[in-house]
Design a binder for these strands. Structure first.
Lengths: 209, 209
DNA sequence: GTCTATAACCCGATAGAC
DNA sequence: GTCTATCGGGTTATAGAC
């Protein structure tokens, strides 16, 4: 069990380096130097570089999904299983936006790692991403409970567009800041969440649910 | 001038290979083998691998921007410089969506290359991307002509969200197809353009322009 | 302008001693 | 579990014949 020290040190160093410099620019040798462990330890504990990256992503991804579902459950408990559509969408995009936006200096390593993931999309992560569909289905179901008259197709598009707006804001907040000369405040997380949610609601309502 | 044959062959082979297999999985040796030229020819004609990638992207990027602006100009000419906001947004997202969606088999190599760019975002391309802001400013200006009463901040957010929806649909059409069990038809390009445009218009109008 | 050949240096992965 | 040493193969880049 004390052997976990090496394993943990590798995970921490790798996440920090990937968050800071991106996947393309960090080698295993960089990681083992930062973690102060031997090069061969990475392959011993994780099998390969790709599996190390995959483990980092799975950990953060599960935590994000838990947070989303706990927000959803909290929202649905208030009025017996039928939350307003705004609350459902807020549970979907809120955790990501709260974690990945806001002042740089108070952003966690985990958050900066997930931003990097959404920008670079490296192969081992792309493979895992395909499994998150089951998680999204739970939100489609919750949206259907909120809007019983809405067709499935419109719900899918609404969820797709909500995630698109949230993701792109995380991925490219710099471009929006530059384009708007700072007039769009990407540090005002609550404002952004409400913007994304309200546009998504309009998309669903405008489709005549 | 006949020396351009080698140069052209390298560009064509590189674009096809990157489109098919992604940036991470294609080496210079793969490219020169496919182009049937010598390894040293890449450095002779382009200076480096990154500059080859950059040239591919700049070419396609300029073509896309030209197409957008020509659509915008056509829309504004109809009624003397004041196109409906729908037409402006259609000129912004239409060229990308028309090129990158629709049946796989009739997608050009150039389009598949640009899809790959939007998924993988490799360093030499990220550097160039930052220059496209001037291009987007022209669309902000056109949107302001369409909606004279709308505040700049709302225009920026509207453009940002419109691009977000278009980009995410291109990047992740597979997830939407799987999530919806094929009920969202990502091959119906005109439908998707109208969906993106109408949601973006609602976002702008809903902000009480 | 094109090619062969090769230099000098990265990378990830792994065999085998400890 | 940890280390050393190394393998195979990728990269840019260049010298020099043609």
């Amino acid at each position: 069990m004390p052997s976990d020290r090496t394993r943990t040190a590798i995970l921490a160093a790798a996440e920090r380096l990937y968050a800071d410099r991106g996947f393309g620019d960090v080698t295993l040798r960089d990681i083992v130097a930062a973690a102060d462990v031997n090069l061969a330890a990475v392959n011993y504990h994780f099998g390969s570089k790709d599996e190390l990256i995959a483990e980092l992503f799975v950990t953060r991804s599960l935590a994000l999904n838990r947070e989303r579902l706990s927000e959803l459950r909290a929202a649905e408990e208030v009025r017996g299983g039928r939350a307003p559509i705004e609350a459902v969408l807020r549970a979907l995009v809120g955790p990501t936006l709260r974690g990945c936006l806001g002042p740089d200096n108070q952003r966690s390593t985990a958050a900066r790692f997930m931003i990097r993931v959404s920008i670079e999309s490296v192969p081992p992560i792309r493979r895992i991403r395909n499994r998150e569909i089951d998680h999204l289905r739970k939100f489609v179901a919750a949206m259907a409970r909120s809007l019983p008259g809405c067709s499935d197709v419109e719900l899918y598009w609404g969820l797709h567009f909500a995630l698109a707006m949230a993701q792109q804001t995380v991925r490219d907040s710099e471009r929006l800041t530059k384009l708007s000369d700072g007039k769009c405040d990407v540090d005002d997380v609550d404002d952004i969440i409400e913007r994304v949610v309200s546009v998504a609601v309009m998309a669903l309502a405008g489709a005549w649910c």
